[in-house]
Every structure is written in structure tokens, then in C-alpha cells.
Amino acid sequence: MINYELVHALCTAKGISGDETAVRSLILNEIKDYADWRVDALGNILVHKKGKSPAKARLMLSAHMDEVGLMVTDITADGFLKFDEVGGIDRRVLPGKAVTVGKNHIPGVIGVKPIHLCKGEEAQSIPAYSEMYIDIGADSQEQATEVVGYGDSVCYDAPFLQNEYSLNAKAIDDRFGCYVMIELIKSDLEYDADFAFVVQQEVKGLKDGKYTVAVSTQGGGGQSKYELFIIGDNGEKKTAPITDNGWNKWQTVEIKDVIVKNGKATIGVEMQANAGNWGSMDNFEFYLQQ
């Protein structure tokens, strides 16, 4: 029996990459009494669930809490919001869509030049990010900045529709994955298991070339798995283990010479930890090698 009310709450919660607070609260509220959990420096929820017996092999299940969205990058003198993508979005889906902006979920729409006024190719062209804008109905920059701000997260304002056969909603990627894990955490398991509700970043628009990804960490150590990873465009994953060894003993782990060919890569950190482990990550770097 699928708990559609929970799926609805998860999918309609707003949490784009880097701004997952609402989703995290929702998940914690569901699982807090069922397992040991903690939230790490990046916002991942790391859960250790005791089963009937300890397991021979360590298995981590992970689902991501963030969804793709947009970020407000500028507010024009006339009160329109300029934006860029957070995560991978095909621009064809943006013109004419309703969105919500910022923590107060201010409604807005992604406007487009009326087709009647378009000349030649314009009527079939999807504008570049630099040409697109969100209209929240403000008459001036001043009026807009009263309710929204630079860097505000923008989510799709999509309906949650379901029929007997299917679900149609935003953020099924990966809130449905989160839902599956919540259900597992709330049930009786045969073996101990670790769950990670992770945050990770898909980066797009990269120039082809060799890249380095790096992160600096410090902490008490003791995690059973702690690694920096990067997945290039061909799906190949490279990892580098991270071992912390004490309070404020910062060290940097890096992966070099990662070939990026189609403009995309996914970078992140994966961890399997136990209740009591502690530490922090800082200074994520991702750059094209010169």
C-alpha cells in the first residue's frame, strides 16, 4: 500500500540543490523515532537502522533530497527576475511555466515574447537563459525586492496529479526514492542497514577538458565509507578515499585528470557512517586544469 499522502508531501515540498531544508525536516519528522540518524555539514541525513542481526557486508542505500530548479541571479529595474538553472534542465520546458520564488513561495511565471510579435525563426526559438525572466507582477525593482531576493531558489509550481495507473508531479526524481527509504526505515529489517539521504550537485555547461575535483575535511574519522567522487559524462565514476584523523586536522583530497566531454559531470561525497561519527567538509573545488 503506497502512502500517497506522504508521496504528495515529499513531491510538493520545495528543495532545490543547496536549499533542501524543507525536505530534510519532512524526512526527519518521519524517521526520527525509527533509527539512529544525524545530519552532516552538507545537510545529508545519515541513518543507521538496526535490523534483527548485524550484516556480513555493508550496504548503503542512498536517495537524493534535492530537485532541479532555478536561482534568481538578478532583479531588473522593472521588477523582472533573471535566473539560471540549478541542475540539468532542458530549456524547452521553461517558457510559460508557473514557478514559486524564495522561502515565501512567491508565485511567478516565466514569460515569453508573444508569438504574434515574433519574426522569422524567433517563433520556434527557445530563448537562452540570459534572455529569460520571471514575472512576479512587480512594477519595479523596489517592489520585487520587498518579497524576493538575489540567490532565491525557484521551484516548478506543478500540480500533483494521480490516477489509477500513474503519478504526475515534480520532483518524483528523487523524492520517490526518499519515500521508499522512509518506508524501509519504518519497517522491521532482517539486517542492520545504513541509509543516506544525500545532497549532490549535477554541474552542466562545462568546457571539454581535464578537470580536478577537491574537498577539504576534518573530523573524528571512523566512517566505514567516506569518499569524494566524480562521475564524468560517460558514466565512469572515479573516487578518492577520505580519512579524517582528529579535530581541526584539515586535509585536502583531490581527484585529478577527469575527462569531461559533453559538458556535464556529477560531483559529490558519499559516506556510510555510524552514530557518533563527526566532522566537516569545506572548500569544494571543481576546475578545469590549465
Partner: peptide
């Protein structure tokens, strides 16, 4: 604004 779209204003 935005004539003939789902988001006319």
C-alpha cells in the same frame, strides 16, 4: 503580457 501562453498576465 505573454499572449497565447498558459501564463498570460
Amino acid at each position: 503580457r505573454y499572449m497565447h501562453t498558459p501564463c498570460e498576465v
